[in-house]
């Protein structure tokens, strides 16, 4: 029974990891930007959910669309007015710019919200399957990961903006000649990434104590998940997240929690050597 519990723990944890990585993967895959702001976007979504809940008493789940949309707006503006200026530069330039923007956002959040850990204390209980326990808030995270993956899949396949994003990713110049406003597409893509980070932050405010100290941890996880899952494929982040969750869960149980995160990084290095595209990534995106 322990093994089943560990398996479930891993899947649920992996789904939370997927929530972290979906937006990051999109921005990295489409814009070739390693978005150092991503962890701070998640924490900002968490803080907005916490304070909105604290002052209004409204369950953060109902606030998710509003907060995620607000993050979309922030992401759109940052990309349109700042990152677009250097988007054609080597990846190190955009990485440095987003790092600088992240320092500003991180410190602003620390000044205004302090680094005190905060959590929405709406304990939603657990679902019990015999001797196995599944926390409802984590199941909501799992639902969100599946929903965001499906939403992204639909947007990319069936919407005009999705096709424009794909076109810009395939050939920027040809897309420009076809009348696509490339800078706008970039900004929308970055905004979608921020939207997904904000949505993850709302759910996380019930699962994790939210503090600016976590931004680097989230960013590190997103990076590992993208390498494991691979870029250029919509389900990559979901598969990479669940793979990492399962690995950490079984490693934590069998060889000790002290070594669990190391195993994830070892797997990332192994994949970089033998399969740079990740588990389901597309060649050319690595």
């Amino acid at each position: 029974m322990d093994i089943l519990q560990i398996l479930l723990n891993g899947i649920v944890l992996g789904s939370l990891y997927a929530c972290i990585a979906i937006g990051f993967s999109l921005v990295w895959g489409v814009l070739n930007i390693i978005n150092m702001l991503h962890g701070s976007f998640i924490i900002l979504g968490g803080y907005l959910a916490f304070f909105a809940w604290q002052y209004s008493g409204v369950n953060p789940v109902f606030l998710l669309p509003i907060i995620a949309t607000a993050l979309f707006g922030l992401g759109y503006l940052l990309q349109y007015f700042f990152i677009n200026k250097v988007v054609m530069s080597p990846v190190l330039t955009t990485l440095t710019l987003t790092f600088g923007l992240d320092m500003i956002l991180y410190n602003l959040m620390t000044v205004f919200f302090t680094a005190t850990p905060r959590r929405v204390t709406l304990d939603l209980g657990t679902v019990n399957l015999g001797d196995m326990y599944l926390p409802v808030d984590r199941l909501m995270g799992m639902g969100l990961a599946l929903f965001l993956t499906a939403l992204l899949f639909l947007v990319m396949r069936a919407s005009k903006i999705g096709r424009a994003i794909v076109a810009v990713r395939m050939d920027r110049q040809a897309a420009t000649l076809m009348g696509i406003r490339v800078n706008n597409v970039y900004a929308i893509t970055f905004g979608i990434g921020a939207f997904m980070a904000g949505a993850a932050g709302v759910i996380f405010s019930m699962v994790f104590p939210i503090t600016t100290n976590l931004t680097g941890t989230f960013l590190g996880k997103a990076f590992v998940i993208c390498v494991i899952g691979g870029l250029g494929s919509v389900p990559g982040a979901l598969i990479g997240g669940i793979a990492l969750g399962l690995i950490e869960s079984f490693a934590g149980y069998t060889i000790g929690p002290q070594n669990a995160t190391t195993v994830g990084f070892v797997l990332m290095l192994f994949l970089l050597i033998v399969r740079p595209t990740g588990l389901v990534g597309v060649k050319g995106y690595e």
Partner: peptide, 11 residues
């Protein structure tokens, strides 16, 4: 022991 930066204690 658990590592600094551990995000999950379920295992």
């Amino acid at each position: 022991l658990y590592a600094v930066g551990t995000m999950d204690h379920s295992a």
